[in-house]
Design a protein around this nucleic acid. Structure first.
Lengths: 124, 124
DNA sequence: TTTTTAGTACTAATTAATTCGTATGTCAAG
DNA sequence: CTTGACATACGAATTAATTAGTACTAAAAA
């Protein structure tokens, strides 16, 4: 059976976003990318990536001396799971009130909605 | 200054939703409502509500022997903050990819979008 | 061949979230 | 007055997330 909660913690997500963007990455790759943003230890990144592998989000294989990590699942699937979890938790499973918030707070305008609907329709 | 992270933990949110719905509530009110869903101790609820008061989400005043708690902020404001935090964390601050996900996964249909846009426009 | 470097494995400390038990006080019923 | 019901205060255990130090290994460089 599948784990019920497909949800990444904030730091796990940060790392997964980098691995998805690059397609694959070593600990060093991720470490250096994260260092540009904040102070962090190499072994911290290593531990996190090991956890991600244990949890089934990353697969690893040896490349030369180091491990090369790859995403075990496509980004859309995992992010989709996080959205679902958020909507369940905050809106009891209904997406509409989320959209109402987005429109009212003007983080989305009608133009955006139309553009996106067209885009999605075309890709089907 | 204001705390930067307006975000409720899952259990805090569960309780706040109940207090928002009722307008005000005692520990016992919330305890009984939560008991319908799951096993929980009275003192657990008490601790959580004290934490919510400490964090500034609830205000309390004495009513007879017990405290009566009220929301310190409207639901829209707090939920709005959680949405913002989620979009920042998952989508680097852009709401559009969230909407793309919602439409593609058919949790929102074009009809829903139109309905909501009309609704929001009318209320302005 | 010796030394330095880059990598992993393992351990552990810290903090936040969640849960609940025990002690204590007060009010009201008997 | 004594007892029981109900409330709060306080302390503490547990678990997950995050961070990083230390020891060890293998390869590369000197």
């Amino acid at each position: 059976m599948r784990p019920k909660h497909n949800t990444l913690t904030p730091q796990e997500l940060e790392i997964m976003k980098l691995v998805w963007k690059r397609g694959s990455a070593t600990v060093r790759d991720v470490y250096e990318a994260l260092l540009d943003r904040r102070k962090i230890a190499y072994t911290t990144v290593m531990t996190m990536m090991k956890i991600l592998e244990t949890k089934g989000y990353l697969k690893k294989r040896r490349q030369d001396r180091a491990f090369l990590y790859r995403p075990a699942h496509p980004k859309n699937q995992i992010i989709g799971g996080m959205i679902r979890e958020f909507i369940d938790r905050v809106f009891n499973g209904s997406a509409e009130p989320l959209l109402v918030h987005l429109v009212k707070s003007r983080r989305l305008r009608e133009k955006d909605l139309q553009k996106i609907v067209r885009m999605v329709e075309e890709s089907e």
